[in-house]
Design a protein around this nucleic acid. Structure first.
Length: 271
DNA sequence: GCGACAG
DNA sequence: ATCTTGTCGC
């Protein structure tokens, strides 16, 4: 199905990452980022892609903008896209970034006043093999402050699922607890953060099938995408989480999935 | 050879 | 990413 890219393309991607990385800004650049309750922050965005079972090139690309701090829907854009690059760990941006940039451009063209002041991205930022994940990539190319939020651990630069890592996880007690993800050389690339318990959740606490796979705990890997500090990124993530993942990403996920359910010819034709 | 492999 | 969908506790 998905062809493995030739090494020369991987090499090119690697050098593009190194080149764009020079424009990466890792600290806070906005007033609201330093303000006690994020005063001045009014719009938070989220992006995601959803797929159909046997098809990994056609996808639904979704952008949502929510109000802050209410987290109510202000804008939504959904579009079927054809992806040109396969998924390769470490190069996710080359697969997902083009259609997400287009979604941002549509927003800029039609409703510029609704442009989000920060964008949550499904995937890592600097918590990456070459410290330039999809959240950095999209951040630099769009110019928007971005936060990378991953649900699964990417083992990079000596950050591994070791005994120590598992111990640190078990030591996350309260909602909002977190610990740094440190490189072998001591550099902090991100934080593993537990779901805060302060934000009101609509109905039941956390439903979930008990018999499929292991029950993921309510934690996410947060890292800097662009134009935000790690501390601010973690604080903001916690303020935007009703469930495990920040509401903008969750809404983008739900809505793109829903779109596929209703707009796609039933994907399971027998025969 | 073995394991890892964001989405 | 995609697929499983039951069942425990408030």
């Amino acid at each position: 199905m998905s062809a493995v890219p030739p090494q020369n393309l991987i090499d090119e991607w690697t050098s593009v990452q190194a080149s764009l990385k020079q424009q990466l800004v890792e600290g806070d650049t906005e007033e609201w980022q330093r303000a006690p309750d994020f005063k001045g922050l009014e719009r938070v965005g989220g992006v995601d892609l959803s797929f159909i079972k046997g098809d990994d090139i056609n996808a639904c690309a979704q952008l949502v903008v929510l109000s802050f701090p209410e987290l109510e829907l202000l804008y939504e854009d959904c579009r079927m896209v054809t992806l040109s690059a396969p998924y390769v760990a470490g190069y996710l941006a080359f697969r997902e970034t083009p259609c997400l940039l287009e979604a941002l451009q549509r927003l800029e063209r039609t409703q510029p006043a609704l442009m989000p002041q920060v964008l949550f991205v499904d995937g890592n930022g600097v918590f990456h093999y070459r410290e330039f994940g999809v959240a950095c990539h999209l951040g630099v190319l769009s110019g928007l402050p971005c936060v990378g939020v991953a649900k699964n651990l990417l083992q990079v630069q000596g950050v591994v699922r070791s005994e120590e890592h598992l111990t640190q996880i078990s030591e996350l007690k309260k909602g909002g607890d977190s610990f740094p993800l440190k490189t072998a050389s001591g550099r902090v690339l991100g934080r593993l953060s537990a779901l805060p318990s302060a934000l009101p959740r609509p109905r039941p606490p956390a439903p979930g099938p008990a018999q499929f796979g292991r029950q993921h705990q309510a934690r996410v890997y947060v890292s800097v995408g662009h134009r935000i500090s790690l501390d601010t990124a973690v604080r903001l993530t916690q303020r935007c989480c009703r469930y495990r993942v920040p509401e903008p990403i969750r809404q983008a996920d739900i809505r793109s999935r829903e779109y596929l359910r209703t707009h796609c010819p039933s994907a399971h034709t027998c025969g």
